[in-house]
Design a protein around this nucleic acid. Structure first.
Lengths: 196, 196
DNA sequence: TACATTTCATACCGATCGGTATATTTTCAG
DNA sequence: CTGAAAATATACCGATCGGTATGAAATGTA
């Protein structure tokens, strides 16, 4: 790994939590200097501008989330248990441990970039659709393997599970009540069981 | 209504959509000047600072949302139909008409103020709990009137319905797909029917 | 209608914003 | 070990940030 690649990775890793807590407009270059221990000159030698860092950071945060969840899913083989593993990640507060201050990067970016930053919005939209498809794939797998009943509206079920999880994160973060997260996740588990 | 009260109302009304689209940090005083047609001097004669305007704007946006939904609910008397009216508001895009660019103020504020603005976060948390309680109240009403089955975990059901709706708004806004909103709202309707 | 009060605009404040030109240091291949 | 290239720091840019002191205009009451 060349020096440039090292520094790039360093900038991304160190600014990622800042972007995830303060948002894109809320994160200044001086914040980035503090987080990285580097100066603007150095940061701008590795990235074209703040936008470029933000986009790289989003990809990074997303990858962390995806890796964690897919790792948990990998521990199981049946569709039902893999879907349950998805909710387990939030129940155990594992994700909260990875993003102790910022919450879900997908949710944060989607809500902020919505009407302000088309490029980030596009990335967030891709990520959302990607996750919808992952959940849908698992449901279809469960159907074809006889684990779930037939005639499920797969898209609808996948979207609903995903929406409920993201809503749960918002609610529990803003109220500070972990029990809310657990209760809603209980409902999501029931949704998954009801696919049988 | 005195001049001050008129101007205050004018500032709140005109800056409300700006705050809801650009967020708190993303909205500058010059944005507020443009939106109101007033200068800083005038704005600061009516409000202590930007924070004070933002808080008043949040209350205003919340009131608009609440008024609309409660008005729709008022058209019905049974708990089930009142709950369905809650989802109807989003299905019909009525709320989108009120907030054409910004989406749900509760969601936006909750996500942004989360780790950055304790006062706004507090307001958003209150609003979230308030809505959870409103939904819970309706469910309890349905139970006591024999419309819904007994032994429902009311808090859980209320939180789940609310979380799913907010998640749906996020997903459909960022992807630009109204059909996603409609599909998830279909699931919420089913949740309500399943209370019977 | 006179006049004190309040509302609003102008002009300004220091601080910080994102970004860049340039000098200095570090890296690394020959 | 040398020297060119790359990486980093310094110093600076104009613009804008949130906020304020002060003077002009509108308001409302006696």
């Amino acid at each position: 790994m060349s020096k440039t690649e090292q520094t790039k990775a360093h900038i991304i890793e160190k600014t990622a939590p800042v972007f995830n807590t303060k948002g894109f407009v809320g994160t200044s270059l001086s914040d980035m200097e503090k987080a990285t221990g580097l100066t603007k000159g150095s940061i701008y030698n590795n990235f074209k501008n703040k936008d470029a860092v933000a986009l790289a950071v989003f990809d990074h945060n997303l990858q962390i989330t995806n890796n964690l969840i897919e790792q948990e899913m990998g521990k199981h083989s049946s569709a039902k248990e893999q879907l349950l593993a998805y909710t387990e990640v939030y129940l155990d507060n594992t994700l909260q441990h990875l993003f102790p201050q910022g919450g879900c990067p997908m949710l944060n970016t989607a809500v902020e970039a919505d009407d302000t930053h088309p490029e980030l919005k596009g990335r967030a939209a891709e990520a959302v659709i990607d996750w919808k498809n992952k959940i849908a794939f698992l449901i279809r797998k469960g159907v074809s393997e006889g684990e779930f009943r037939e005639y499920i509206n797969v898209e609808q079920a996948a979207l609903t599970i995903f929406a409920t999880v993201e809503g749960a994160i918002m609610i529990s973060k803003v109220t500070g009540k972990v029990e809310y997260l657990n209760m809603i996740m209980g409902s999501v588990r029931k949704m998954i069981y009801d696919l049988q």
